[in-house]
Design a protein around this nucleic acid. Structure first.
Lengths: 217, 217
DNA sequence: ACTTAAACGGAGAGATTTTCTCCGTCTTTG
DNA sequence: CAAAGACGGAGAAAATCTCTCCGTTTAAGT
């Protein structure tokens, strides 16, 4: 692959990540094009249709997510700190959020299952370790962790996004939220069981929700 | 005002709240119409243009927000519990989120300043009381509180919204996040000063951000 | 340097979506 | 039960989005 082609691909993928994150998986590809600073032709040449783009993006992100989790585990002996480092890395890369936004749109084929399983396993290891060490509330599941990351690391709506151009606030709020996951912290977590990853996937894949932005038409 | 007119008005405002929350302040009014289950004529008769609708919505929400804060303060003697009650009420009413999404679009006139000041004062009282009682970290500002509410109570993206049709998860995660605001909790909040309300407003009103969904075009 | 194969940007046709008005019908209220 | 007013929806006009085609530019090998 030619060098400029590779560069374009990256720019498109990065732009798509941001755009889908902000506007949902039905965001105009036109917006991706503008954000990426390439011509429409370039996008459509490389990704024949929306699905191809989404699939490439998800695969890319899941791989990087698994990578980050592994690195966090290797770099931090303390289980909670490892988890925290991972959460921050995930936020930086806009990973959790993008993945969740996008997963629902895809027919999950074998390839995707493979890369997803690897990512889930890595993160689950982090979570388990922290819980086994008694450094993380027992009533917090993978689903809770992922959703927390999604919620905190999503770009703020509208002009508020400008508040956090450099991501300082995301990290600040992520730390605040993580503090709530320590064993001693606060009041019980307002009812309900820990949320598992399976529940998350089940909801995301649920058919019959026509609009991806969640608006019932 | 005729009874059915009043009913339509409410349905439109409620629908607009949800829709703007999910799709940003540029969401098609058409979507509001569909969600509200009224005809386009009805919307455009009552709200001549987008601005009129947004203004009415924001005013309505700010008033309810102030109301909720007052009630929380009256109902709970314990300052942290009062704050917590308020946060849950705000989440239920989708208030914080909607307000923040919308504020930026408006020329802030005297009316709006008045209703906004009242709301801010009420919430600030809650916050101060909790801090003075030593039940809330000192390094948390109004901005942090509001943003936390916004982040946690925003509808989840895409199909994930279905996970939380009844709002159970929002309350669960709100409690987790609030737990992170207790004085003892966790590690320091990843650098940075407390975020004030003024900073929030300044960012929201910042001109030169053409797209309200935050996509640079 | 030069050739060639490949990638690039952007104009623009066609399809789709969104805005907003007009009007015939139905509802509230006195 | 009459009149004033509200309602829904069809649809014209405008805006946006998708996707293709093609002349120009760029990278890589000789």
């Amino acid at each position: 692959m030619r060098a400029d082609a590779e560069r374009s691909r990256r720019r498109i993928l990065d732009a798509a990540c941001e755009v889908f994150l902000e506007r949902g998986p039905d965001a105009p590809l036109d917006a991706v094009v503008r954000r990426a600073g390439v011509g429409p032709g370039t996008l459509y040449r490389r990704f024949p249709d929306r699905t191809a783009l989404v699939r490439a993006l998800v695969t890319d992100l899941l791989a990087r997510l698994a990578e980050a989790a592994g690195q966090a585990r290797a770099a931090e002996p303390d289980p909670f700190r490892a988890l925290r480092r991972f959460a921050h890395a995930a936020a930086d890369l806009r990973m959790g959020a993008a993945i969740v936004v996008l997963l629902e749109r895809l027919v999950v084929d074998a390839d995707l299952v493979a890369v997803r399983s690897r990512a889930v396993a890595e993160v689950e290891a982090l979570l388990r370790a922290a819980q086994d060490a008694g450094q993380l509330r027992a009533d917090v599941g993978m689903g809770d962790l992922v959703l927390l990351c999604v919620r905190v690391s999503r770009p703020l709506p509208g002009g508020l996004a400008a508040l956090d151009a450099d991501g300082t606030l995301v990290h600040r709020h992520l730390d605040l939220a993580l503090a709530g996951l320590r064993p001693g912290a606060g009041d019980g977590a307002g009812g309900a069981e820990p949320l598992s990853f399976e529940q998350l996937i089940a909801a995301a894949g649920r058919p019959g929700e026509p609009s991806p932005t969640g608006v019932a038409e």
